[in-house]
């Protein structure tokens, strides 16, 4: 026995394939309307916002929105929020910075960013310098011009052996190739290697001791400890800016070296690209805490 219920045929879409009919299970109409609304919304969005890609850039959209402007706004907001700390950093006596841990943290973080943008080209992103090419390693405990935070800030501001700042760090080692004979230079090289505890010819070194006392000790000191006030390197330690091998030392003594660093103080860079006092202090604070600060 069939009931009325069983006789009810479901609606079909009218599509028939090989006798198979497709049932019509209609979607609710509001879904369709939602779909139309999203299309209208999408069109409006592409008109209002940057949307269609062009060869260069994209359609700007009539609302004037741009993600670059958002970033600029964010940067401005951050600078504004940091204005107090920046001002404090510009005027602080650097030796007192370590007593203000919050400001120091700020300075180190800011300095790290400035260092990567301006200093890493020579000193490396890890501040390890370039061995044997005269770009000093800033991580070690050996400083040509002093490793106290004030000394570091001075070096950054005025640079080394440049024409930009009248107060730049300045000294000049003579090219001894014009003064000493090759044998005398070889003797001096062996003496320097002896005081720095490296392999050397003892007889030559003894001969070189006299030459050293005569020609070199004025700047590098009788004991070879160097002098950071004139940038004279310490010759008894294990660190060599241009290499400590016989070959490198011979080259250094014969032709001398003339490493330069630009002045970063903005007053010495009328064309722009300099750093203001807060930025210099930040970089000094960063470099000072890299592991060798005095």
């Amino acid at each position: 026995m069939t009931t009325e219920h069983d006789k009810k045929e479901p609606d079909t879409t009218g599509h028939v394939w090989d006798g198979i009919r497709e049932y019509d299970n209609p979607m609710p109409r509001w879904w369709l309307w939602t779909f139309y609304i999203t299309i209208i919304w999408g069109i409006g969005y592409t008109i209002a916002r940057p949307a269609w890609p062009l060869i260069e850039g994209a359609t700007p959209g009539i609302s004037g929105y741009s993600t670059r402007a958002e970033v600029a706004k964010d940067i401005e907001a951050v600078n504004e929020a940091n204005a107090g700390a920046t001002q404090e950093l510009a005027s602080i006596e650097l030796a007192l910075l370590s007593g203000n841990s919050e400001l120091q943290q700020y300075a180190v973080n800011a300095g790290a960013a400035i260092f990567r943008a301006n200093c890493s080209q020579c000193h490396g992103s890890g501040a390890a310098g370039v061995q044997a090419s005269g770009y000093p390693n800033l991580l070690d405990d050996d400083w040509l011009w002093g490793g106290a935070i004030d000394d570091i800030a001075y070096t950054i501001t005025h640079g080394i052996r440049n024409e930009q700042s009248p107060d730049s760090r300045w000294s000049q080692m003579p090219a001894f190739g014009e003064i000493l004979s090759e044998e005398e230079i070889a003797a001096a090289v062996n003496y320097v290697r002896s005081i720095s505890d490296q392999e050397h010819d003892a007889a030559l070194a003894a001969q070189g001791a006299e030459i050293y006392l005569e020609q070199c000790s004025a700047c590098h000191g009788e004991a070879g400890m160097g002098d950071p006030t004139i940038g004279a390197p310490n010759l008894v330690d294990a660190i060599w800016l241009y290499g400590g091998s016989e070959e490198h030392l011979t080259e250094t003594i014969t032709y001398s070296r003339f490493g330069v660093m630009p002045a970063w103080g903005e007053e010495y860079r009328p064309g722009g690209g300099g750093l203001d006092q807060a930025e210099i202090n930040a970089v000094a604070a960063y470099v000072h805490q890299l592991g060798g600060g005095e």
Partner: peptide
């Protein structure tokens, strides 16, 4: 480990890693 650089030579010749 800080690998830039892998080690630092100190003035007394000792080797330091960070």
């Amino acid at each position: 480990p800080v690998r830039n650089p892998t080690f630092v030579t100190l003035s007394d010749g000792s080797i330091r890693n960070a």
